[in-house]
Design a protein around this nucleic acid. Sequence first.
DNA 1: TCAGCTATATTTAGCGCTAAATATTACCAT
DNA 2: ATGGTAATATTTAGCGCTAAATATAGCTGA
Lengths: 184, 184
Amino acid sequence: MAESTPEGDTPPTYRAAEIAAAWRRERPQTPTDSIEIVTPIWQLAKLFADDRGRVLRAAGIDAATLDLLSVIRRSGPPYTLSTREIARRTLVTAGAISQRVARAEQQGLVRRAPGGAAPRTVLVSLTPEGHALIERSVDQVLGREATLVEGLSQPERATLSALLDKLLTDLQRRCPPPGSPAQP
Amino acid sequence: MAESTPEGDTPPTYRAAEIAAAWRRERPQTPTDSIEIVTPIWQLAKLFADDRGRVLRAAGIDAATLDLLSVIRRSGPPYTLSTREIARRTLVTAGAISQRVARAEQQGLVRRAPGGAAPRTVLVSLTPEGHALIERSVDQVLGREATLVEGLSQPERATLSALLDKLLTDLQRRCPPPGSPAQP
DNA sequence: TCAGCTATATTTAGCGCTAAATATTACCAT
DNA sequence: ATGGTAATATTTAGCGCTAAATATAGCTGA
């Protein structure tokens, strides 16, 4: 056996190519076509999320709050969005949004007010404190991420993002649309 | 009105390109370079995870258990791995592995036994029931995922996976290695 | 007019994860 | 021998999310 139990060496992490090869060795009929796409996507998502978490901890804000303030901030003046619209744009459950808004309101970062078209619409607005916090956080987060993707050349990044977008579009056509994270 | 709030139309989901454009409109100095890479990665990760969740619910197994049984199964005979090694390969906290193993043991899918090289090593093995469950689940999951990536041609998939791997390698060199999901 | 219907927001129970604290074992140098 | 140290596993507290149940406001048609 190569490297399983008593752990000879300890490679830094586990590679998609190894996973696919292991399945083909163990079960030759296994359909491994997707592994080298899906696995690195999950690994990258986790790496980006963890790294962002570290940046945000230093900035005194958590990822959920950043997500909330960001979507309101970048919607432009008057920095107000309905709960429903926030849920649509962040692709997180409406119940989760309720909780995020409650926490942020507790910290004085947003304000809730009834009003709007639909029946029970609640509008969420940035307070001056919330606006200030997002202004000083967003460049830190996006600046850090910009350095993280520097390992790819500009043409490589363009190719990558085009392929990701194509795959995403195709999948959204074929899967029910429950939820998904977002960008500040 | 179409179907949302005051908000005019309701596109199926929120696009990375729109997010980047919104930030540039609102704050021209914002570094948006990473958005069209990071955002689709998170959206895709969520889509794949949700879709897998639906497949697994039908198969009577959850994602965490699939992850555990998979890593043991594809390590080959004797289908035994130490807790430590499982944690390394799935890139999830050792505490989480303890809990996953406890749950799976409760269901009769794995067995725990002391032994192995290091001090307090615990070896986790598949029971016949666990082996049978993973055998009949893995092809369903990977087969489904294979159809999901069909929207990309073979060369496109190769390019995509090469770029993802390059980015991942580069990031692993630059970020601390806390944790990340895995593939069955 | 008014009874229901629809659309939205909130609450609640439960889940799995992380981080930190704790427990346990083997080894090793004195 | 023996006390200490390193390595590992488990437990625990807390967190944020999801799904489902609940509450509420406006609309609509008989």
